[in-house]
Design a protein around this nucleic acid. Structure first.
Lengths: 219, 219
DNA sequence: ATGATACAAACGGTATACCGTCTGATTTTC
DNA sequence: GAAAATCAGACGGTATACCGTTTGTATCAT
């Protein structure tokens, strides 16, 4: 956020700012992101904005209409179900692939759990939760698998962020449960077979789905 | 190929032409695709070329270096293994999801098999093979699943095309086997349970992997 | 002969300007 | 009063020009 504004390109700069605005809820789902307006507002020309919008589309934050206009992505419960189905297909696989090599990464995973314990907001807890899973995807050694996961991560973050903001689910503190569950995964990586890791991850994802509060109606 | 050049934009036009050049083998893996040169050659300006290159990257035909230069993608046997692993994760799932709804699409699938029988070249057989699978992905009703598959399709087409060109595997005519195997899938969709469809698709993908000739060394 | 340095060409990044199209509102006509 | 046509504003698509950086090569010094 407040880091040095040393972006490699204006495209990165624009993408980063827009991403933050969308995640923070400053932009509402369905809001039009017109190239010209955004370009003026961010103080860059339209070309980098255009390319940033494409990037954000790939990341799941933005969607294009048939006529090429960009909007802040709206997510329906059905969209969320799709994401859940895909997590269930990809993450247990990643856990199995990662298990032989993840010993060296167990430190990263445990650091993540400690950070989760210190996190100040539920949004940070969510972010760290997704980061935990991404570490495993990285350790899987399958670059394409990681890419696919990353193309979904934005939408997950978007969904969970909106959920928190709209329903004040801070009341429902999932932090302890998340930490406990993640710790069992780390332990499993350390001691168990790949198949056991895969199975546990499947259970974890399924359980996560059931933990979520009642979904809000479509946007 | 020889269809009416009625592209909605020059970006589409450029992407289409480049895609064809790469698939046909006119461009070698590792070849530089410099914006300026391509723009001049295709008779458009650099901006649409630039965006076409991004599109082709998403589709798997092109990769960017750290400094932003675009190259025709090179694929190693390890890349291929990654793709195989992901097919095995996604396609059986798609088959399961598609099975209740695919009855209305069985006609499409059977038309595909007939087209395969008529195909003149092995490249067409390959293209139709991938199309058969994409029909099932579409029928799964999970739009994101379809998107993930499409992000891999280009690389598969690339790999298989190069395989054919380099090793003259026309000798190894997989057409009959492909048609037979696809027909059993259609039959399964018509008569069997989702779980059976899923299982059969897993078997089909595994078998497909074993059918392929010895992989060439990395590029 | 070899290494470093400097220069030139090529390439990507960006701003700007122009054009065609789409959208929506107002006016005109039946 | 309603429907159709027209006009204006906004937006995306594209070409062009400029700038900074990278890259490859040639030259010069050691």
């Amino acid at each position: 956020m407040t880091e040095v504004p040393a972006f490699t390109s204006r495209t990165d700069y624009a993408a980063s700012l827009l991403r933050q605005e969308i995640l923070s809820g400053k932009m509402e789902p369905g809001d039009l992101l017109a190239e010209s307006a955004v370009a003026v507002r961010l103080g860059v020309s339209r070309v980098p904005v255009r390319e940033a919008l494409f990037t954000l589309e790939r990341e799941g934050f933005v969607e294009f209409s048939g006529t090429g206009r960009a909007f802040v992505k709206a997510l329906s419960p059905q969209d969320f179900d799709e994401l859940y189905t895909l997590r269930l297909a990809l993450e247990p696989l990643a856990a199995r692939l990662a298990s032989p090599s993840v010993t060296c990464d167990a430190r990263l995973l445990e650091k993540n759990i400690k950070d989760t314990n210190r996190a100040k907001t539920m949004l940070d807890v969510t972010r760290l939760d997704l980061e935990f899973h991404e570490i495993i995807l990285e350790a899987s050694g399958n670059g394409r698998l990681l890419k696919l996961w990353r193309s979904m991560r934005g939408e997950l973050e978007l969904w969970l962020g909106r959920l928190h903001r709209r329903h004040q689910v801070q009341k429902l503190d999932t932090r302890a449960e998340t930490m406990r569950s993640h710790q069992t995964i780390v332990d499993c990586f350390k001691q168990q077979t790949p198949a056991a890791c895969e199975s546990l991850m499947r259970k974890h994802i399924t359980g996560w789905r059931e933990w979520l509060p009642v979904l809000p109606e479509g946007e």
